[in-house]
Amino acid sequence: MSQSNAYSATAEVGQLRERRSRWETIKLELRKAPISAWFGFIVIGCYLFVALFSPLLAPHGEAEIFKTPFAPWDAKHILGTDQIGRDVFSRLIYGATNTIGIALATTLLSFLIGGGLGLAAAITGGWLDQLLSRFVDVLMAIPSLIFALMLLTIFGSSIFSLICIIAVLDSTRVFRLTRSVAINVTVMDYVEAAKLRGEKLGWIMRREILPNIMPPLIAEFGLRFSFVFLTIAALSFLGLGIQPPTADWGSMVRDNASMIQFAKYDITAAMTPMIPAAAIALLTVAVNFVVDWFLHKTSGLNDEH
C-alpha cells in the first residue's frame, strides 16, 4: 500500500489560508476601520490624556473659588465661572480624572467579580452554577438604577460605597455574559481533550478557555464602561453620586442647570451646564463606536455587500 502519487498532505493547499502575523493583522484591521471607529479612538485618546495630566493642564485649582460667580467667558476664565465662582474650564479638566477614573475602577471591579464567578460557574457547573445563576436572576429583576438608589440610601454616597454598589450591581451582567460564552467554550472537544489528558482545572481555565472568550469580554468591557459611566453621571446629576467639592461632570450639570434659562440673552451662559453633559455624551459615543466596530470584526459578520 504505497502513498498515492497524486496526493501529498503538505501540498493539500486547496483551502490553505494566507499567513499573517498578529501585528500585521491588527495593522490591516485598523487600516480598514471605518471613520467612526477612528473618531472613537482619537476621542478616547484625548480623554485619557486629559484625565492623566489634569493638574498640569488646568489653569486653576479644582475647588478654587473666585470673587465673581457666573463670570462670563473671557481670557482668565475661558468658560466662565460657576454659581459659587469656580473656574468651569478647570473643573471640566479635573472632572475628566474623577469621572473617568471612578467609572474605570468600578468597571474593573465588576469584571473581577462577575468575570471570576461566571468562569467558575461555567466550568464547575452543578449546584454552584445553579445557586449563582438564580441569585443573579433575582438581582437582575430589580432595575439597577433603582437598586443603586436604595443601596445608596443605606450606605450613603461616599465614593467608596458608590464604586462598590455599582460594581456589584453591574457584575450581574458580566457574570451572565462570561458564563454563557465560557459554557460555549467548555463544550468544545479541545477542552474535553485537555480533561482526558488529565490537566488541572486551573490550566484548563487559563490556557484553553480564557484566550477564547477574550474578544466578547473586551467588547463587553467597553459597553459596561459606558453604562457604568452613564449610571454614575446620572446619580451625580441626581445629587446622589460624587459629592462636592470633587469636580465631576454629572454634578456640574446639576449645579448649573438653571443657567439654561439665560440662553436667549447669553448663549454662553447656557453652555455652562451643556458642556459637561456634552463631555459625557462624547466619550460614550466614542466608546460605542469603537465597540461597534470591534463587535463587527470579531463576530465575523460580513454584511458589507
Partner: peptide
C-alpha cells in the same frame, strides 16, 4: 507527513485534512 513550516501555524491556517 507534514513539514517544519507547520510548526508555528495556528489551526485556522490549515486545511481539514
Amino acid at each position: 507527513e507534514l513539514d517544519q513550516t507547520f510548526y508555528d501555524r495556528i489551526p485556522s491556517e490549515l486545511s481539514g485534512g
